Each structure stands twice: as structure tokens, then as C-alpha cells.
Amino acid sequence: MSKIETDRHELRALVENWALWRDAGDWERFAAVWHPVDGWMTATWFQGSATDFIAVSREGFDHGVSILHFLGGHTADVVGDRAVAQTKMTINQRAQVDGVEVDVVCTGRFYDFCARHEGAWKIVRRQPIYEKDRLDVVDPSATLHLDPQLLGRFPVGYRHLGYLQTKAGFTVKTGLPGLTGEVVRRLYDEGAKWLAGSSAPGDPH
């Protein structure tokens, strides 16, 4: 196996470990996927350091928050000790909306700025790209009427996810990257600059 193939294999394993260890509540190993100094996570409901993300994820897990991930195709661009990895994914969240139990499935990509740290690949910044989502009631006989004003507050890529999370008490960030548009083009530009040696992985804030 060539060095580039080895790197891509290790990056794929890094992304898979993120999903499996987070969803299983294996917090000690989950911490190991992040860069220990610069790790940063952006999500609809959270933006901050990897350390803080682990803490709030653990708290939510312990209180029954159900957010699960499933991974699909993967690719990685590697330049020396830096990489940008993209992985198809779904985010699955179950919660009550106005007393009705629902599932939201959001399809997109994890866009990861990675760096080699002490010989191992770590995630420096994770920025999901939200492509489309849907909401289903768990009980087919149940009826749920959505507030169109609240639904319209969020971009089409995570409209229903944002709706559910707002109803669940989260503060949901608007303006995150979707399949097309200026925001995702800026993210791609930040990725290219990261591979070219920029001092920081874009502006995750």
C-alpha cells in the first residue's frame, strides 16, 4: 500500500471512529479523534471547541438525547501532514415535537480539516454540509402540523432538523453550508487554503 493510500485508509478510520464512539457514548476514545489543541466542531446546535463538544454531547447522551450518525462514501485530499476529508453521512434525531414523537433524517457530508499530530491523523475542524432532510412521525396514525414560519427560518438543507431542535430547546445556527451556494463555496475555498498551508482551517466561527 502506498503512503497516500495508507493516509486515506487512516483518515477513513478516523471518521468512522468519530461516529461509532460518539454514538456509543465511548467518550474517552471519542476524545482521541480530535486534535488536542485546535479541535473545533460546528453543528446546527453547537459551535465550539472539541472539549466542550464532548462535554455537552455526554450530558445530552446521559439525558436521553437521541442523535445518531450513519456514514457512506468517503474521499480525502492529502498534502503532506494535512488533509481535507469528505464523507457522506446522515444525522438521525428522534424527539418529541408538540407531543408527537418524530424522526428527522438529514443527509449531507462531513467536511473535515485534518492534520497529522504526533504521527496520527486528527480532526482539527469538522463542518457538516447539510444537503436535504425530512421529518416523519414515528406512529403513522399520529398527526403533526408544523409552523411554517418556524420551518422557514432555516435553510432547506436542515429545515426540519432545525425545527425539531428548536422545539427541543436548542439554539440552532442559521446560514450553515448546504449543497450549493456562497457558504459552501467559501468552505471549499477554506479547504483549499488549508491544504496549501494556511495558518488556520478557515473561520469556523
Rank of each mutant, 00 (worst) to 15 (best):
P148C: 11
T166H: 08
V172S: 13
L146G: 05
Y158I: 03
L179F: 07
S57M: 01
A168W: 06
K193E: 15
R134M: 04
R126G: 04
K167W: 02
S141R: 15
D136I: 01
D98E: 14
V97M: 11
Y130E: 11
A120Y: 00
G73Y: 00
H117A: 05
G181Q: 07
E59A: 10
E101V: 01
G64Y: 02
L161V: 03
D136Y: 08
R159F: 08
G157N: 08
C114S: 14
G60A: 07
V138L: 12
P155E: 15
L164D: 06
E190N: 13
I123T: 08
A192L: 10
A168S: 14
G73H: 01
G169C: 03
K132T: 14
A85M: 10
L195M: 05
G157H: 08
V97I: 15
V56L: 06
L187F: 09
L176I: 05
Y188S: 09
T171V: 11
G197A: 05
P177I: 07
L68W: 00
A196W: 02
D103N: 12
S141A: 14
L151N: 04
Q93A: 06
R185C: 07
A142V: 14
F110P: 04
T171C: 03
A168H: 01
Y188K: 13
S141P: 01
